[in-house]
Write a protein that binds this DNA or RNA. Structure first.
Lengths: 218, 218
DNA sequence: CCGGATCCGTAACGATACTG
DNA sequence: CAGTATCGTTACGGATCCGG
């Protein structure tokens, strides 16, 4: 730890930021929230970072056991990076920051890069704890662009997965841009359905529980 | 927004970090979580930042309406900075980061700077939502160093205040270093009480509810 | 091709001095 | 008190190169 860049404070926030507070680090962690990823995958998904800086960040995160290296099955030279248990604990605060930041997006940001995973990130971040359906157990499938994601609700607890669900109670299809725009308040769910940008398939009761959970219904 | 430093991604997390992701910004927000503060106050409490950088950060935060300027009553040239409604929304994610970072503190960090407010920050961050006492309404007073802080629990909701409470149901006294050490797992509450570093005064039932809320009891 | 390391120009940071 | 100005140092961003 370089003493010039260490905040030098006996405080949890400062100690945490000494590790994950540098430029790009939160975005690296965001990528790993969905699945393990290899070096060049991260490099592609984070345009502008440069290989030297990515290597430095991954080294820092590995040293502090926030991430771990994995072998890639079927590729002996390949390495994957995945969140450790400690890194996984950052999911909630990172989702909180992601939700907070949504309100700063405007039409002017439309030309920026988008990825399907970030659309699902927005969906995850919008979940209101108190509005998670209780007393039911059901599965929502989100088709964001050409990627599939699954949310499982089971008696007031919720779990996320990458990939499709066998028998979803609800299927919502849209592209990442559309869903992030909804989260940013640039587009209402009603308009998005009318224009066909969002397609919803499921029982009205289920739809209501899901949209309420995401803060999109009265 | 400088295009070199803008992440250029249509993503809530990236948009948020464009504003609060730079060095020192989260620590400035941390200071303002407790009370409005003036320029030189922030300068003192954030050793190492330098007035030019602090001014730049405050300008960025003000431009995006995360903080606001206030006049200081009785001092016409004085200015105070306080969190706006948007800035206040960062409380939960910041507390989440603060809690996460506690686990990285070690004995080696003992020589670092500490402030009483950071002790209370640790206390706030340790609160477990699901363990907030339901069906009771009571007040805990924390005397951290020579500062007083109050936590009001009222039927599964919780509120923080700087300052003393009129008739607390529970009073806990310690210095900031001790409480942060407990949060970091460097010290058990039992040991701290035995050595006299922590003094607790209140009904055993109340003590149990409070320590359970803070994740310090079985 | 994957996983980096090296090098270099530019932008940001850190410390001090100075001003309304 | 609340900043601005200046300047040396560090980090970042982009390109290229290298070993397996």
């Amino acid at each position: 730890m370089d003493s010039r860049r260490d905040y030098g404070q006996f405080c949890g926030l400062a100690a945490g930021l000494n590790i994950v507070g540098e430029r790009w680090t939160f975005l690296i962690l965001r990528e790993l929230l969905f699945a393990p990823m290899r070096f060049n995958g991260l490099l592609e998904n984070l345009p502008g970072i440069g290989p030297n800086l990515l290597a430095a960040r991954l080294r820092m995160l590995t040293e502090h056991k926030v991430i771990e290296q994995l072998a890639v099955p079927g590729d002996s030279r390949g390495r994957q990076y995945k969140l450790s248990e400690v890194g996984e604990q950052l999911r909630t605060p990172v989702l909180g920051l992601a939700k907070w930041g949504l309100q700063f997006l405007t039409e002017a940001d439309s030309k920026k890069v988008v990825r399907d995973e970030w659309g699902f990130l927005a969906i995850q971040s919008m979940i209101i704890e108190e509005h998670i359906p209780a007393d039911v157990s059901e599965v929502y499938e989100f088709r964001v662009g050409d990627h599939c994601f699954t949310i499982e609700v089971d008696h007031a607890t919720v779990e996320f997965r990458s990939g499709s669900a066998p028998l979803p109670d609800l299927t919502i299809s849209c592209d990442a841009y559309t869903f992030i725009s909804i989260g940013a308040g640039m587009l209402t769910p009603f308009d998005a359905i009318v224009t066909g940008d969002v397609k919803v398939d499921g029982d009205p009761e289920v739809i209501h529980r899901c949209t309420r959970m995401l803060g999109l219904a009265g």
